[in-house]
Design a protein around this nucleic acid. Sequence first.
DNA 1: CACTTGACCTGTCCGC
DNA 2: TGCGGACAGGTCAAGT
Length: 288
Amino acid sequence: MPELPEVETVKIGLQKFIVGKRISTINYDWPKSFPNDISIVESYAHQSTITSIRRRAKILIIDLDSEYSFIVHLKMTGQLVYISQTEKFGAGHPNESLIRPLPDTSTRVTLTFGDGSKLFFNDQRKFGWMKLIPTEAISSLVFFQKLGPEPLENVFTSQLFQSNINRRPNAAIKAVLLDQTILAGVGNIYADESLWAAYIHPTRPVKTLSANEVLLLHKELKDVLRLAIKKGGSTDRNYVNAEGKKGSYLQFARVFRRENLPCPRCGALIIKTRVASRGTHICLVCQV
DNA sequence: CACTTGACCTGTCCGC
DNA sequence: TGCGGACAGGTCAAGT
């Protein structure tokens, strides 16, 4: 379930591997995963060269020298995995346990580059997509226009956080953290982690939070996201980075996926419940 | 209007 | 062992 840290990790990997490469072949087998007019693809992606890789919220942007861009949303099970021409798999491969042979049954799109290397867009559950649109049109997409601030950029001040969450005074704070128009990039894992770090129960209505609680939550959100990027993101089940490797943040997680294990602060057992229609992990002693 | 829930999907896990 | 159903969650549409 790629959130901001996972997409950021993929971005960093792709910057290393595919910038400067020319697309020689494009294959796809599932139109919903690749909802593009094939004549546009032929004109603006085929034989084009990748110039830069960007991220906004949970969206990855692959810019081409044709002045078109692929925008990719991995949703829950999407992966973008790069494989060089010379890589081999199976017994003896140094990353045998981390990288699997591709394509596989989850592969929806394959880009083959001029040097024979490949980028695979895999998506087991087919919720994700990879769209080709003019680069200049990205910022005017409705989805982009509604997005809230990037939590790790300077624009995301505690004052802006406070005023944005105030737009939903009666909603549960967890639901508000998941709202991409309030702030961009937080999903289920980091909502639970940051609320635990800030001692806040996920069902608390926004209007009941004190100014100091909002201030602490603002700080912990940033700290949790930064740590997660440093650890290469979280691999719950599916997520891998651009090299096909898993993230290690969940080894450091304090509540997520830790139901019935002791809270690292107080030792009480962490419970799992449902908030905002999401599995939610809480320490009932620390989080009030 | 404010907020919550269901649909989109498939693989995995649990209980019978 | 097989099978049915619950569950995983990002986003948008539909419902309350």
